[in-house]
Simulated assay, not measured.
Amino acid sequence: MSKVKYYYDSETLSYRKIETKRGRKVGVMVLFVAAVVLCSFILVTIMFNTALETPKEKMLKRELAQMQLQYKLLNKKMTQAQAVLANLEERDNNIYRLYFEANPIPEEQRKAGFGGVNRYEALYNYENADLLVSTTRDLEKLQKRLIVHSKSLDEIAKLAEDKEKFLASIPAIQPVNNEDLTRMASGYGFRSDPFTKARKMHWGMDFTAPRGTPVYASGDGVVIRSDNTASGFGKHIRIDHGYGYVSLYAHLSRYNVRKGEKVKRGDLIGFVGSTGRSQAPHLHYEIHKNGDKINPINFYYGNLSPQEFEELLKNAAKQNQSLD
């Protein structure tokens, strides 16, 4: 039950009941409710702001700012790495692969992107989605280019190994040292036969040297013959160098290797003699390529100076008599 209030009326000298108007009462209530709502909003705002500024939240803000900075630095480093890689790719295509006669890797293959429109969909849920997506995309492209380049270098290394093996196998040195030679008696081409005096094809080069002079393998390979059963060659050695090359050393006095033995360029394989169809101690030397007999004069770049090769070339061209 509401409390009744009275006031003293001095005119009538009596107490009269206070009558409250209905409109005034409603206004007071509305004003009170508005004040309560406003105070509640201010209180909630203060509490919310206070909650965001807790030490933990401040630490997380600092970590987020640091992460954004690190991502920007990472993007800068990736840009620098891409520039270095581009230089390596250019050298790979225009120097290494060109030297080893390998096809260049097309630009679109090196820098091909990744398929899938939703590849980075999960990253778009984060606040810094654009930064995360661009960094991830650049990193993956860089990784793919590195993989392509790494495979290219593996191929180049294999080609270099094969090239090194090929260069070591080609018969590329004179089989008798210059200081041991008496003279270069006869070259490749038509020469006078020492026995019949008729002109016939001489398929190799004759190096005159004293009996017992060392004879060396002109390239890496495997001895496929070391015998005296070939007509006219007497004691002779044949070395298979691979890649279609075979070298032949004839009229030896004795052997220093056997059939099936592996030899390296410069290994001692035998000694000069005059066995078989020979007029005097000398080494008859031939080179075969895929079964064809070719001029050995083009295979002495390994141990002759330009002046020595020029002298050898002049002597080999003389139309003289062979020694076998």
Rank of each mutant, 00 (worst) to 15 (best):
Ile18Pro: 02
Ala230Tyr: 15
Gly270Thr: 01
Arg16Val: 11
Asp92Ala: 15
Gly291Trp: 08
Ala102Thr: 04
Asn290Lys: 11
Lys158Asn: 15
Asn177Lys: 12
Ala217Pro: 01
Gly27Tyr: 02
Val33Arg: 03
Leu60Ile: 11
Gln80Val: 12
Ala83Glu: 14
Arg265Glu: 08
Gly270His: 05
Gly244Ser: 12
Arg211Tyr: 10
Gly204His: 04
Val222Gly: 02
Leu153Val: 13
Pro106Leu: 01
Gly116Asp: 09
Asp162Val: 08
Glu155Thr: 12
Thr182Asn: 12
Tyr188Asn: 06
Gly291Ile: 12
Asp92Gln: 15
Lys111Val: 07
Ala122Met: 10
Asn125Arg: 12
Lys25Arg: 12
Lys61Met: 14
Lys158Val: 13
Gly187Asn: 04
Ala217Lys: 05
Tyr15Trp: 12
Thr135Tyr: 00
Ile287Pro: 04
His149Glu: 15
Gly187Glu: 06
Asn228Leu: 06
Phe100Ala: 02
Tyr285Trp: 11
Gly115Cys: 06
Leu283His: 06
Asp138Leu: 11
Gly116Pro: 08
Tyr6Gly: 10
Glu164Leu: 13
Glu53Asp: 15
Leu146Pro: 03
Thr50Cys: 04
Gly221Val: 05
His288Gln: 14
Val272His: 03
Gly273Asn: 01
Lys262Glu: 06
Lys262Pro: 03
Asp9Asn: 14
Ala280Cys: 09
Gly27Met: 08
Arg24Glu: 07
Ile18Ala: 06
Ile170Ala: 07
Pro296Asn: 01
Ile287Ala: 04
Ala209Pro: 03
Glu308Trp: 07
Thr54Asp: 11
Leu98Asp: 09
Thr229Met: 13
Ala65Trp: 03
Glu311Gln: 06
